[in-house]
Nucleic acid binder design. Structure first.
Lengths: 207, 207
DNA sequence: CGTGGAAACGGACTTTACCCCGTTTATCTG
DNA sequence: CAGATAAACGGGGTAAAGTCCGTTTCCACG
């Protein structure tokens, strides 16, 4: 837990982020959340964000690269707490639970998380690039991969299987089910996706 | 097969597409393909497409709605042949094969198709909207759904399972595996995804 | 402290997606 | 064949994304 954070002597390779840059990133994320809460994702433009933060547009773009990048950063940020639950929280989500149960619990938690942040998650997808490296899904994938490694499955391409399961978990919420349908019946959707995930995992993990 | 095509007396509800509109759509798609072949997807801008087609910008937008819409239309168009193979071609892809084998064959064919059209497929994703209704994936989903219905699976939410499998099939190519990785080793990727799909279907379909 | 160089900043500039609405054209009806 | 009507067209206009590069700020090191 209290081991290594960004401001430590952790410079293994790059050179730690400059102080002003870090401050501005926090400021930008905070401002973005405000704007999001006030007027929804569509009004969150790069120009507006820059102006409202009192920063230049160039800064916003260097930090996030692209519009979708802002949403990725926001999602990433929101995910931190969730990640801690997964890595060191209580079972069945955290360690000290049998891997198959952890896998099911993980899916349930992720579904809830994505539902809760569906707007942001939706907007974090950028057709020009594949899903962001170093954020959201890769961690999902890595975690699922790790759990699969501890479940007795016959010979199998575990990396690929992890990717397939990640897709089965995320894509419905990110791509397939319409946003309006989710808004209309979020509870129902959550129950359905959750039990669907359990079924899928059950099917995949046996003999 | 030769039952109902767009120009028939099929006006159940809307009013068949106007002749000039149809002609222009074909022209636009053809021009888009040319431009794509010549200079890649990034140079395919709405303005350029309009000008090169000798049409107005407004026309392009009314036809396709959005930039991603062009790529969706292109993909849809390319998919027609593929769909016929699936609906009425020879087994194991077409009818007259046991459903489990058809499902596996379908996945293999779809993987090949997406790999072949990966550029277009990538660009057809629009973060603002869920995956297009009436094209590509919905058909995938419907087909998978239909096949699942004919495979003995215990009690299961078949609609959801179909969505999960569709996601597991498409998302790796659409979202997760980087375009450059695919370009670098498309053959290897195809083999891996293909056998991964077989494994997944095997796992899912056995009580 | 002072300083050199790397990193971050700012905001004008360019490009592109997307909107709007007056005008033209296809098709249907009598 | 003429007139009506709804659809399609055109292309200028707007706003937002993304780029560039001269200027400023940080901070490691002396």
């Amino acid at each position: 837990m209290g081991c290594v954070n960004a401001s430590d002597v952790s410079w293994g390779a790059p050179r730690a982020e400059r102080a002003d840059a870090a401050r501005n990133r926090r400021l930008l994320l905070a401002t973005a959340r405000e704007m999001l809460a006030e007027s929804g994702p569509d009004r969150l433009t790069m120009d507006a964000l820059a102006e409202r933060s009192g920063l230049g547009k160039g800064t916003v773009f260097r930090r996030f690269g692209t519009r979708a990048g802002i949403f990725q950063a926001l999602l990433d940020d929101s995910e931190r707490g969730f990640q801690e639950q997964v890595l060191s929280g209580p079972p069945p989500l955290g360690p000290d639970a049998p891997p198959r149960e952890r896998l099911i619990a993980y899916g349930q938690a992720r579904i809830r998380f994505l539902l809760e942040h569906r707007e942001i998650a939706r907007h974090s997808i950028d057709g020009r690039q594949n899903v962001p490296t170093g954020t959201q899904t890769p961690l999902s994938r890595a975690h699922i991969r790790m759990l699969l490694g501890r479940i007795p499955l016959g010979a199998a391409d575990l990396d690929l299987l992890a990717m397939q399961l990640t897709a089965a978990l995320d894509a419905p919420l990110l791509l397939y089910v319409s946003a309006s349908a989710l808004d209309a019946a979020a509870d129902r959707a959550e129950r359905r996706l959750t039990s669907g995930w359990r079924d899928l995992v059950d099917r995949v993990c046996r003999p």
